[in-house]
């Protein structure tokens, strides 16, 4: 089962949840990809992301806590960060409805995975709050660093970062279906 392990910091459920996000590459890549996407799209999207992504994460997490059997397959969480990475590489400015729908679907999915993991491994809702706070901090800081980028080379560097995230997703899909 994906994401079944949970870090034990020794400081309690809240910090276990916070560390879990930071040490789960799929989760970090999704949040970073969204942060890059919003940062490229400008202030409005960056501000929307600050509220929308942690909210979707929390909602999904609560669902996962209540129904741990909803744990999504690793393929779904891998595809989600790959898709967002691809959008960054293409520098796509999504309409608001598509932007929010994507956040709800992708962050909600990762939230469900977090909630399911925390329901079955101990920290429960406190861990989910910690993970959501980590997500909130990341989406507050990263887009803020990017929205001021005006030089084309800087924007290109962000897009290259998105392409790396998409490439990592492709490799990961191969890894999930590896032969032998």
């Amino acid at each position: 089962m994906p994401l079944a392990h949970l870090v034990q910091t020794g400081f309690g459920g809240f910090y276990d949840g916070l560390a879990h996000w930071a040490l789960t590459p799929q989760d970090v890549l999704l949040v970073v990809a969204f942060a890059l996407l919003a940062g490229l799209a400008g202030k409005q999207r960056a501000r929307q992301l600050v509220l929308a992504l942690p909210s979707a994460w929390l909602l999904g997490g609560l669902l996962g806590l209540l129904v741990p059997s909803l744990m999504p397959p690793e393929l779904a969480t891998t595809l989600s960060f790959g898709l967002v990475g691809l959008l960054v590489a293409l520098d796509r400015r999504l309409p608001a409805a598509a932007f929010f729908a994507l956040i709800l679907a992708a962050a909600g999915l990762h939230g469900v995975a977090n909630g399911s993991t925390m329901a079955t491994t101990g920290p429960g809702w406190l861990g989910l709050v910690g993970a959501t706070l980590a997500v909130f901090i990341a989406v507050s800081l990263i887009p803020a660093l990017l929205v001021g980028l005006k030089k084309p080379a800087a924007r290109v560097a962000v897009r290259v970062g998105g392409s790396w995230i998409a490439a990592a997703s492709l490799l990961m899909i191969g890894w999930l279906f590896r032969a032998g």
Partner: peptide, 22 residues
């Protein structure tokens, strides 16, 4: 200067995926 280094890792990852999947 940036299109080629973007195309290469994505295509390489696709090749890697094929290799992993046999």
């Amino acid at each position: 200067v940036w299109v080629l280094p973007v195309a290469f890792p994505i295509a390489m990852a696709l090749g890697g995926m094929m290799g992993l999947m046999g």
